[in-house]
Design a protein around this nucleic acid. Sequence first.
DNA 1: AGCTTTTCATAACATATATCAACCAGCAAA
DNA 2: TTTGCTGGTTGATATATGTTATGAAAAGCT
Lengths: 195, 195
Amino acid sequence: MFDSLHKHINEIIPLEESEFGEFKSILTPIKIRKKEILITSGSYVDMEYYVVKGCLKAYHTNEAGHRSVVQFAIEDWWISDFNAFFNKTPAKLTIEAIEDSTLLGLKLDNLEELYRRIPKFERFFRVKTTRAFLSLTNRIQSGLEKDSRERYIEFCKTYPNIEQRVPNYHIASYLGIKPESLSRIRREVVTINTP
Amino acid sequence: MFDSLHKHINEIIPLEESEFGEFKSILTPIKIRKKEILITSGSYVDMEYYVVKGCLKAYHTNEAGHRSVVQFAIEDWWISDFNAFFNKTPAKLTIEAIEDSTLLGLKLDNLEELYRRIPKFERFFRVKTTRAFLSLTNRIQSGLEKDSRERYIEFCKTYPNIEQRVPNYHIASYLGIKPESLSRIRREVVTINTP
DNA sequence: AGCTTTTCATAACATATATCAACCAGCAAA
DNA sequence: TTTGCTGGTTGATATATGTTATGAAAAGCT
């Protein structure tokens, strides 16, 4: 249950066994079935979640009722409505399991207490957040200068494991296009690659 | 010169005078004139920069030579090619002054050393990075679900001080549209607001 | 002041994507 | 078996944005 997380942290900050033990003690294991809701839009968000096993999506619903997938998460990723989590405001996102999933929940209060007790964790999360920030800058850059086909191809290369697991209409939503458009793009891309 | 930065940090982490003194000692004051290049695409990036006074843009140039503005920076913001800075890889962005500017440069090595000596700074930059991450999630969400007009209006509301200072074609580029499209949008928006 | 460059605006036409509607295959539930 | 649901595809048309070209006002420079 905790092995993948231990490894995940150790790749950035080597930990004593006891330090990881302290971390473990503030985590809440959670099981969630496909289609169940982890975070409901409008509610307060007291945890961020590490994905041990499974696949989830975070989506936003606008005034017109249209949904956009803001984030996917699979094994070894963190997911939450981070805005709501860090600012203690009501969630604007909904988070739903795409597959049966196993998570480890981490509360903000416990995290801040952990930072005080073991500063290594402050470093770990600084590094993680920096990397997350950098990957968002890349996503924004793609959105600015690439057309839909290029973004789709890039998505397949960057996240082959996600592309295999989630329905195409979720990917379309993540790319900011309609499923019909993605279908047409896929037809062209597939045709080009199969002579 | 250092007052605004001192205040900027103190709003997140109250510092002893001596702690800020240590920070000051690793900063490099830099003056740059309008249109001068701060970071050249392809070069290595040894600093991130705090803007004391002025206005700059970070843009990416694609294979076809088209440029997209990835970031603006005005007083109290940080700017760099953060990907190149943190990963010690060649810059993919160009950073150019839009106005004569005064900056404070911070080297990665000095920053990491500072983290070891005064852990408060690790906390400060964790918090700053978290906020930067959150603001990028908002920008991505806007890109997914809003059309160009809405994104332009949102930009004007969020960054009125930037909208006043930079030419419209820079804003168009930041929004991922062509200046001609922004011109059309502005005509409609202005018409609606002036009966 | 006079000249050049920058910035913004406009128009006509081209293209990509959205929209709307219909359809189909696979599959699970009844 | 039928039924309904999910995920995907296709076609006709509408709309938004890009492209190309032109011009004019504003700003900067000598």
